[in-house]
Write a protein that binds this DNA or RNA. Structure first.
Length: 583
DNA sequence: GTTGTCTGCCCC
DNA sequence: ATTCTGC
DNA sequence: GCAGAATGGGCAGACAAC
C-alpha cells in the first residue's frame, strides 16, 4: 500500500498555486496538470471541492472579495483589541473602513501590512487615493427608459446630466507628478502597455492643465478617415492585448472623458458632478476631436419646464444643445437618447449634477444607464428554437443550462444556431424545461439539418419557440444564423442574450428567419464591417445538409417516437456525444 | 512552420 | 455583460 | 436592496498537435 500523502497546509497549497501560475511555455500544460494532481491527491474531504472550485472558477463558494475584505477588517480589529472583545459597533466600523480603503487602494500588499501592524483605524492615512494606484470605478444601475430613470432619481433630481454611453472599454487614466501615465481597466488591470497612443494623447491634452490627475473615460474605436464615426465594440477588441508600440497599433481609438477623481494631487471625489466637470475641463484644456473629447452631454432641469439658458449654466462642454424653454426634461432626453443611437453610442447615462460625489465601486442610483434593449418600444427580440443544451453546474446542476437556440432558415430548410442562453429563466422554468426538452423531446444526436459550430451534450427535436432579447447582433465564428448572407461562412449571433418568454403561439417553423436577422443587423448603427468579406451569393454549396426537416416539422403535436422515457441525464461526459456537423 | 483548441484575477 | 434567488 | 452565482459573445494569445 502507498502511504497516505501528508496533509495540505495553507503555505503548501499557496506555493503550489504560485507554481501553477508561473508555469509557462512548451509542455507547461502537462506540468501544470501534474501540480494539480498532487494537490488533489493530498486533499481530504471538503478540501477537494475548494481546490477544484479555486482552480476552475474563481472560488465560487459563497464569498467574494467584498465579504472577505470586510471579514479581514473585523479580524484585524479583534487582533488589536486592547481590553476584552470589541463591540459589535467597533467591528462594523473596522469592516466599513477596510472595505472603503480597499475601494480606494485595492491592493492586499498595501492593506494587509497596515491591518497587521496598526489595525483598521490607520487605514485612512495609508490607503489613500493617489495617481498610480487604481480605484474601483463607480458603476451605474440599469433603468428601463428615460421616464423610469428620472423617477428613480426622485424629485430631488433637480439638474440632470444626460451623457452618451459609448460602446467601448472603460479606462481609468492616471498621470503622476512626474507625468508618468498608467491606464487601468474596469477591473483594475494595468493596461498601460497596450495603449501607448492613449498615453501620448492624454499628456498632450493636459499641457497647461493639471499636472497629476485621475480621469474616468471610455476608449472607443474610431474611424478618423470617415468623420470620426464611432466603430463597434467588436472592432475595438481586435487590438493587441499585450505591449505594443505606437507604430504597431492597428485600431485607432478616441478617448471620451467623463469624470475626474484627482486634480493636481487633490481628491475631488467629494465634490458634485457639476464641479468635477468644471475641474475636468480645466485639467484637460487641449482636447482634440477624434482623439480626446468630453463625453457628449446635455443638461436638463427636472424640476419644471426648463427656463435655463446657455449663459446661466456653468460651461459643460461638448453639450449637444440646451433644453428649450417649453419642453419637459423627459422629452428632451428622449430625443437625445435617439440621437445617441444615431451617432453610434449605446445609449445614455443619466447623472445627478448637484448631488453626491464620485462613489468608488458603488452601483449608485445617482448614475443610471439607459440602453436600447432596456426600453419598451425600442428593443428587438428574436423568436428562436431550443435545439440543444448542456448540464448545468453549481446551483444549476440538476437542470439543463445553458440552452442552444436556433433560427429557422426556410430556404435551406435548416435550424441555424444563434446563441446560448442561460439568463432570464426562473428555477421553476429550468425544472420544467429540463423535463420537457431534456427527456420528452430528447434525441440521440443533432438532426442533419441543425447547423452550428457548437457541440451540445443533449440535443432536442425542434419543439417550441422562445423569445430571446439581446443588445445587438454580431458576426460570429461559431453561430450560423443567416450564414452566407453577410459573410461567406460566418453567421449572426447576439450580444447579452436573455430569455423573455415562451412563444406558445408559434411553432418552430415560425421562428425568426435569416431575412429578419439580416434586416435587423443592417439597421444597426454600429456593426462590424463585412465589406472585406462579401456575402456568398453562391448559396448552392451551403445547403447540402438539408432534407427531412420539412417532414419532421409538418406535425409536431402527436408524435412520440424515440421517447426513451427514463434515460439518465445525470452526468454524461461532455464530448462523448455525436458531435461535429458543419462543413 | 501551420493549424487547431482552449483560456482569460479578458473585455463587454 | 444580464438575470434570478436567498437573506 | 445587496451579495452571490451562473453563465452569454468574441477577441488575441498561448499552447498542443500535426
Amino acid at each position: 500500500m502507498l502511504a497516505r500523502p501528508a496533509p495540505l497546509t495553507i503555505r503548501g497549497v499557496y506555493s503550489t498555486l504560485r507554481k501553477i501560475a508561473l508555469e509557462k511555455g512548451s509542455g507547461s500544460g502537462a506540468r501544470r496538470q501534474g501540480l494539480v494532481l498532487s494537490l488533489l491527491r493530498s486533499a481530504r474531504e471538503e478540501e477537494t471541492r475548494f481546490i477544484v472550485r479555486m482552480l476552475v472558477q474563481n472560488l465560487r463558494v459563497g464569498a467574494n472579495w467584498r465579504s472577505v475584505i470586510g471579514a479581514l477588517g473585523r479580524a484585524a480589529a479583534l487582533h488589536h483589541a486592547k481590553d476584552g472583545l470589541p463591540t459589535k459597533k467597533q467591528l462594523e466600523i473596522a469592516e466599513a473602513a477596510t472595505v472603503e480603503a480597499f475601494h480606494l487602494c485595492p491592493s492586499l500588499d498595501v492593506l494587509v501590512p497596515v491591518l497587521l501592524e496598526t489595525g483598521p483605524s490607520e487605514l485612512g492615512s495609508v490607503c489613500t487615493l493617489r495617481p498610480g494606484v487604481p480605484v474601483k470605478p463607480m458603476l451605474a444601475k440599469a433603468a428601463e427608459g428615460i421616464t423610469d430613470a428620472l423617477s428613480a432619481m426622485g424629485t430631488t433630481g433637480g439638474a440632470v446630466l444626460g451623457e452618451y454611453k459609448y460602446d467601448g472599454q472603460r479606462a481609468q487614466i492616471h498621470v503622476t507628478n512626474e507625468r508618468k501615465v498608467s491606464i487601468f481597466s474596469r477591473n483594475g488591470e494595468n493596461r498601460t502597455d497596450s495603449f501607448p497612443d492613449v498615453a501620448e494623447v492624454i499628456l498632450e491634452a493636459s499641457v497647461g492643465g493639471a499636472t497629476s490627475f485621475i480621469v474616468d473615460a471610455e476608449l472607443v474605436a474610431i474611424d478618423r478617415a470617415n468623420g470620426n464615426r464611432l466603430k463597434a465594440f467588436q472592432e475595438l477588441s481586435t487590438r493587441a492585448r499585450g505591449a505594443v508600440t505606437s507604430a504597431e497599433i492597428t485600431v485607432e481609438v478616441a478617448i471620451f472623458v467623463f469624470d475626474i477623481l484627482i486634480a493636481d494631487g487633490q481628491p475631488v471625489i467629494e465634490k458634485t458632478l457639476r464641479e468635477r466637470r468644471k475641474i475636468l475641463q480645466q485639467a484637460l484644456p487641449l482636447l482634440a476631436p477624434g482623439r480626446i473629447e468630453l463625453a457628449r452631454c446635455l443638461e436638463v432641469n427636472t424640476q419644471a419646464k426648463a427656463n435655463i439658458s446657455v449663459g446661466q449654466i456653468p460651461a459643460i462642454d461638448n453639450r449637444a444643445s440646451v433644453q428649450p424653454k417649453d419642453e419637459t426634461a423627459e422629452a428632451v432626453l428622449q430625443e437625445f437618447l435617439l440621437t445617441s443611437f444615431a451617432d453610434g453610442a449605446e445609449g445614455l447615462m443619466l447623472k445627478q449634477l448637484d448631488a453626491g460625489g464620485y462613489q468608488p465601486s458603488k452601483r449608485s442610483e445617482s448614475w443610471l444607464k439607459v440602453k436600447r434593449d432596456y426600453c419598451e418600444g425600442l428593443r428587438d427580440s428574436l423568436d428562436l428554437v431550443p435545439i440543444g443544451g448542456w448540464h448545468g453546474n453549481g446551483r444549476k446542476a440538476k437542470w439543463l443550462s445553458p440552452f442552444l437556440l436556433a433560427a429557422w432558415d426556410p430556404v435551406n430548410e435548416e435550424f441555424q444556431s444563434v446563441c446560448r442562453v442561460m439568463s432570464g429563466f426562473t428555477d421553476q422554468f429550468y425544472a420544467e424545461a429540463t423535463e420537457r426538452l431534456g427527456r420528452r423531446h430528447r434525441i440521440d444526436g443533432p438532426k442533419p439539418y441543425y447547423v452550428t459550430g457548437e457541440c451540445c451534450s443533449v440535443w432536442f427535436e425542434p419543439a417550441e419557440v422562445w423569445e430571446i432579447r439581446g443588445a445587438d447582433l454580431t458576426i460570429s465564428p461559431v453561430h450560423k444564423a443567416a450564414r452566407g448572407h453577410l459573410h461567406p461562412e460566418k453567421g449572426v449571433s447576439m450580444r447579452f442574450p436573455r430569455f423573455i418568454r415562451v412563444r406558445d403561439d408559434k411553432r418552430p417553423q415560425d421562428a425568426s428567419t435569416p431575412e429578419v436577422i439580416v434586416d435587423l443587423f443592417n439597421r444597426q448603427t454600429r456593426k462590424v464591417d463585412t465589406r472585406g468579406a462579401p456575402a456568398a451569393q453562391a448559396l448552392g454549396n451551403l445547403n447540402s445538409s438539408s432534407g427531412a426537416a420539412q417532414e419532421d416539422l409538418v406535425e409536431d403535436g402527436a408524435e412520440d417516437d424515440g421517447e426513451s422515457a427514463f434515460e439518465d441525464d445525470s452526468d454524461s461526459e461532455p464530448g462523448d456525444e455525436a458531435c461535429g456537423q458543419e462543413t
